[in-house]
Amino acid sequence: MAIVMETQGLTKAYNEQVIALDDVNIALEKGEFVTLLGRSGSGKSTLLNILGGLDCPTSGEVVINGRRVDFDDRDALITLRREALGFIFQNFNLIPTQTAQENVGYPLVFNFQKKAVREERALALLELVGLARRADHYPRELSGGEQQRVAIARALVGNPAIVLADEPTGNLDSKTSDEIFDLMRTVNRERETTFLVVTHERELGKRADRSIELLDGRVVTA
């Protein structure tokens, strides 16, 4: 299996005392579903942000699709986010002024896709997450679970190699939480999209292909 994302000696220190990540070496294979476990403050969010090109490491390297990420090249980071990555956030983070369908198609605006293409792709993905009939609804008209489904569709719209999810079930009740997790697994299997899901729920970790656990910035189990 091809490795889509890999870190080598990834370290992030805010100052001499606070070391968020300490020599992290992980690798994700294509089509893998991996959870990133750890207590709050263990460095999982920092790791996710660095992998997503939203934060830069103090030292070490990130390789995505065989290419080293240059954290000094802002344009390259933007292109990386546009083309290789999808994001799912804890509090859904949909744009309130846009309908579900527009939210899903929104990343493609910055990919310079035509409106017709955006609408078609968005609708197909809403179908995938089971929300096609709510395409014209605004986020405030959707439940938390539904909003997160829209967010999953949005993360997939650019056909990313990896979807990075930051506590995607953190704001949902356990039943909805299960549903969302199942949905991500289904998408992962059907589309062979690699998922890296940050969570602090150990139970969910058991349903992943594998779990990586961080403790004080170090990988405990990989």
């Binding site: 997503g52 802002r74 986010r81 994001f87 983070n93 744009i95 929104y106 910055f110 949005r154 650019g158």
Partner: peptide, 15 residues
């Protein structure tokens, strides 16, 4: 937050 999201999903500062 909205601007943050927009940038995270691929908008450049120029956008």
């Amino acid at each position: 937050r909205e601007i943050g999201i927009t940038m995270a999903i691929g908008a450049s500062p120029g956008d």
